[in-house]
């Protein structure tokens, strides 16, 4: 800070604290709602301070039947589905992008630029603009209600390919020359030199893609008609509809809490990688 004026220091912290409170308020209210009994959550005004039912709600939600009046899958199963989907999307995206970036940077072959532009075009075709035809393709391939159908149509990635291309271009040519003199083939070079050198970039990208995969909504909504394949994020919508008829907000908000916890933990726990991943992939 340039000057020291107590009033401005106070004002700075005051505004920031107000900002933090405003941003945190929805999550706080969710947490409070998840810690009260079902009956308390039907009495106006709703509480603003946590109750003592957090553990009970947690147990009932995770292992019990969850919400009465729905036929949703058990919550633990939906959490598992979300985890599998998020892992498959992030690892799949990273793997195929690493391979294609390696090919584009380190090999000279016909149609190289054509393939580069083909990958670039995917940037302009988000799921939202091609939902119906993509759904038809997946249906024809018999991939509805499967992890493959959930993930494979989403794992082509222009941004990840460009990012790895950028990383590989900064690796000095001498690396490749000395590896070739030592008799290393292309795949050996890829495994033993390129992968270790791009380790932090891979980790940063993984953090971003994990959140992206976990939070997918429109695509799983269309692909999963079988209750056993739904993800936790999808189930919230169904529970909201039930909650209109018979309010069990403590359970609904507990599910919401469980659904947002893993990605939030990833962001807070790996903040440095998260910020790096965010700034790298969007440029």
């Amino acid at each position: 800070m340039v000057e020291r004026r107590p009033f401005i220091v106070f004002l700075t912290h005051f505004i920031l604290v107000v900002g933090v409170v405003a941003i945190a308020l929805p999550i706080w209210i969710t947490f409070v709602a998840a810690s009260h009994s079902e009956i308390r959550m039907t009495q106006v005004p709703l509480p603003l301070w946590p109750g003592d039912q957090l553990w009970v709600n947690f147990k009932n939600t995770l292992f019990g039947n969850g919400l009465e009046g729905t036929e949703t899958a058990p919550v633990w199963l939906m959490l598992t589905n979300s985890l599998v989907m998020a892992m498959m999307i992030s690892i799949g995206k990273i793997a195929i992008s690493l391979l294609s970036a390696f090919a584009i940077v380190y090999f000279k072959f016909p149609f190289r630029m054509g393939i580069f532009w083909l990958i670039f075009i995917t940037l302009m075709l988000p799921v939202e603009v091609r939902i119906l035809p993509t759904f038809e393709v997946v249906a024809q391939l018999g991939m509805l209600n499967s992890y493959w159908g959930l993930t494979i149509p989403l794992i082509a990635s222009a941004t990840a390919t460009f990012m790895f291309r950028q990383v590989f271009l900064t690796i000095p040519d001498e690396m490749l020359e000395s590896a070739r003199i030592d008799g290393a083939g292309p795949m050996r070079f890829f495994w033993d030199i390129l992968l270790p050198l791009s380790r932090t970039n891979i980790a940063a990208l993984f953090v971003i893609l994990f959140i992206y995969g976990w939070n997918q909504y429109l695509w799983p909504l269309l692909i999963t008609t079988d209750q056993d394949m739904t993800t936790i994020v999808i189930s919230i919508k169904q529970m909201l509809e039930v909650a209109e008829a018979s309010p069990q907000w403590n359970i609904v908000m507990m599910v919401a809490l469980l659904a947002m916890l893993p990605p939030i933990l990833v962001v807070i726990g790996m903040q440095k990688l998260f910020v790096q991943g965010l700034t790298e992939t969007d440029k």
Binding site: F107, I121, T122, E136, V137
Partner: peptide, 29 residues
């Protein structure tokens, strides 16, 4: 890169997964 690997089928195999997914689930739809 100024220095690169000798021509072979390998680069095609490397880009194959990305290209196939792009064609089937992006370009075709």
């Amino acid at each position: 890169k100024r220095v690169h690997f000798p021509p072979s089928v390998l680069p095609y195999l490397l880009v194959a997964p990305q290209v196939i997914i792009t064609l089937v689930f992006f370009i075709w739809p």
